[in-house]
Amino acid sequence: MLQVENLTVYYQTLKGQVRALENASFTLADGEIMGLAGESGCGKTTLGHSLIHLSPPMTHIGGRVLLNGQELPLADMQKMDAYRFNEISIIPQYAMNAMNPIRKIGQMTEELLRAKKADVKTVMAALKDRLEMVKLPQEVLGLYPIELSGGMKQRMVMVLSTLLDPELLIADEITSALDVASQKAVSEMLVEFRDQHCCNSVIFITHDISILYQIADSILIMYAGQLAEKASTETIIHNPRHPYTRLLISALPEIGVRYSDKRLTGIPGKTPLLLNPPQGCRFRERCPLAFEKCAEVPPFVEIEPGHSVACWKEGSADA
């Protein structure tokens, strides 16, 4: 189980701090696949990365993260190494180029495992089964990354990242570079990985809500560095409470149809710059329901079991 408490992460730039993640608190249950969605630049990637590799220019400002009750040394690059890959792993957005181009894949895997002091023999044996699960032939281990197709590389990296059965897997936009058919296949494989206990909980970062509808147990919506709403997938799709989520969902012409960032411009206004974000709720400039209270930051409160919203209208209505 993952508990994130008031996690705040800024980017240090020459022009000042970019407030990319502000006071994020949520929990992720064992075996839960949580979709993390929002427009590009909303902080979803920052959130995902800060859980595993919080490196400069990202700076840990405050808050803590507990994995199975144990606090993660987020800001300590060295100490975090013990958790990376073993307990927390990531399938990066750039999976196509994630493997050393001049090493055979099998050789690279072995070197990585040895460097991580893992039980190389057992894991390499398990690797064979994993390859089968993602329908890759054993021969890929003798190949160089350049000899694999894009989809094959994606699946290979998926296998690699989960080799040590991490407690938490962060899947960062793993479907965005793929065609629709492969998107579906890869997402389903991810679910199977979870079912086969190759990983415990999953955070699935995407801007494509329709994919989440197919595979996610819950969805967390972010807006401009703040959490907006978290609930079960059904609730988010059919009964969203945050005005932003509502606009987002209504902008989907039909569930199952992919929307792109472009369509979101259907919501009037534009996302605030996070270099000098407005006080209070950052959505209030675009929000049809905004009132004076919104000048204060709304707390991210649970309005019903498993359903949290950060909105003065919603939070107070139920309180």
Partner: peptide
């Protein structure tokens, strides 16, 4: 970056 993220 991938190796870094995996704590190599």
């Amino acid at each position: 970056h991938y190796l870094e993220a995996l704590g190599a």
